[in-house]
Structures are given as C-alpha cells and as structure tokens.
Amino acid sequence: MENSNNLIRLNPLDNVLVARREIAKGEQVVISGKELMISQHIDLGFKLAVVKISAGEKIFKYGIPIGSASKDILPGEIVHIHNLQSDYSQTYTIENQNEYEGK
C-alpha cells in the first residue's frame, strides 16, 4: 500500500488512487516520485487515475478489475461513473434511473 497524506494506492497493480481527504482543484500531489496536478475537486473516497488509461482498458483497485474505462482518462483525472463502466451491470443514479424503469 502506498500512502501519502492525501491518497492511498491499495495495491501495487492499481491504476487508480483513493483520496483519503478532500483535495482541491489545482493541488499538486506526489505519486511514485512524480508530481501530479489535480484537475478537479476530489471528495474523500473518490478515485483518480495515476497513469493514462485508454478507453476499454481495465481499471484496477485492490489489485482487481472494477470495470473498464469508457473513455480515455488522463493522469490526475477523477475516475467515476462518467468514464468507468461495470463489466457486469449498468450503474444507475438518481439522474439516470428512469432508463431502468423504462426497460
């Protein structure tokens, strides 16, 4: 596990890190000796890409795939439902659950 004050890498295989506190847009964090510029506000528990991830590539957390990138993701970008999709079933939120009801 790689720790900083702000971020945890839960497994060496992971291409995302988890925020252990809120991180403001524009903050600099150092990961694996490299400085990373945070491009959006990140809330506690959210994930950010630590390397460039291409659309279709697996996202690894805990060393295990949690789904695939639905678009290209840049280092330092938030990884969430807008660019990560399940390999099993769609994730519904309050905003898109009408799609489920409409089935």
């Binding site: 439902i81 994730t91 089935k103």
Partner: peptide
C-alpha cells in the same frame, strides 16, 4: 432484474461499479 445491488448513494460516495462495491 436489470439492476445490481447498487443504490444512487453508493455512487455519490465514490463507488462506481458493482464490482468495486463487491470487493469492499
């Protein structure tokens, strides 16, 4: 069912997919 065991609040709390929720 067409819907995983996943609620909107899970996503608001930073979980993106059922696999991610499952591992936790």
């Amino acid at each position: 069912m067409g819907h995983a065991s996943f609620a909107p609040g899970n996503a608001d709390g930073g979980l993106s997919t059922i696999e991610e929720k499952s591992l936790g």
